[in-house]
Design a protein around this nucleic acid. Structure first.
Lengths: 129, 129
DNA sequence: TGGCATTTACGAAAACTATCGTACATTTGA
DNA sequence: TCAAATGTACGATAGTTTTCGTAAATGCCA
């Protein structure tokens, strides 16, 4: 599998694009600058570099270019998770899961989704026996 | 809260120290070099810098210094998780949990632990109602 | 049309990270 | 005792990431 390694800043931009879909530099920058202190050209440059690295696609048909994430959120999530489980959680996925549930106060609705998910996994497993 | 931002390499070293407890540079380096290709002085330098940054403590009473992680595994896990949930999982902890359970083939034992954990949370919640 | 605002392009500096060579100190055991 | 082995200190360099200034292109509208 091709290992992608977006930097911290690049992940922030990807996160915005995953959430909002195709966007201009201006749109991304406006969101980014709510939590971060950097000039417009900085965001622009980052996104241009990300395009070179093929982390982003862009549509240049109009003057104001429109960027889209070129790597999937799922794949990226999986790779980051795996690395994190290995280095920070001593290889234990359940450790990570419990830590995540523990603090980041999940709503009752979210917890239900997870229970549902677990029981589905269980069924699946019995079937394959 | 003080935001700590260990780099990738620093996390690898912290991971080793969390697992093995107080260790010398040599011990850390021997483990590190199983999966990574870098010279001894590189590891040394990294750990010295980490000491300056107060990521590690060290005991210099004997010639061979002994290093200890100065930040807790739990705190570090929590901070990295929170950031990851925000930037990569659109703020949804349950999304992260399901993704983690999905692929990183958890053992049946691990899944049981998590079910147990969830049902404990449930009880706790009823009690507080 | 002409000028202002917005955008892209580009280069370069600044900051940070990782790597290693070399010098010096300490320990050990032949 | 002294040479080899092992360890720390330190500086330099290469590589990467982040930042921004400036110039050129484009579109808009008074």
């Amino acid at each position: 599998m091709k290992q992608i390694r977006p930097t911290e800043s690049e992940l922030e931009i990807l996160g915005i694009l995953w959430e909002k879909g195709p966007s201009t530099v201006r749109e991304v920058h406006d969101i980014l600058s709510q939590t971060k202190d950097a000039g417009y050209t900085t965001t622009l440059k980052l996104m241009q570099i990300m395009h070179e690295k093929e982390l982003l696609q862009r549509d240049t048909s109009s003057k104001t270019h429109v960027y889209t994430a070129a790597i999937s959120q799922q794949t990226t999530q999986q790779q980051l998770l795996n690395k994190m489980i290995d280095t920070v959680f001593g290889g234990s996925a359940s450790q990570l899961v419990m830590q995540a549930l523990g603090q980041h106060k999940s709503s009752e609705e979210e917890l239900d989704k997870i229970r549902q998910y677990l029981s589905d996994m269980e069924k699946q497993q019995k079937k394959n026996r």
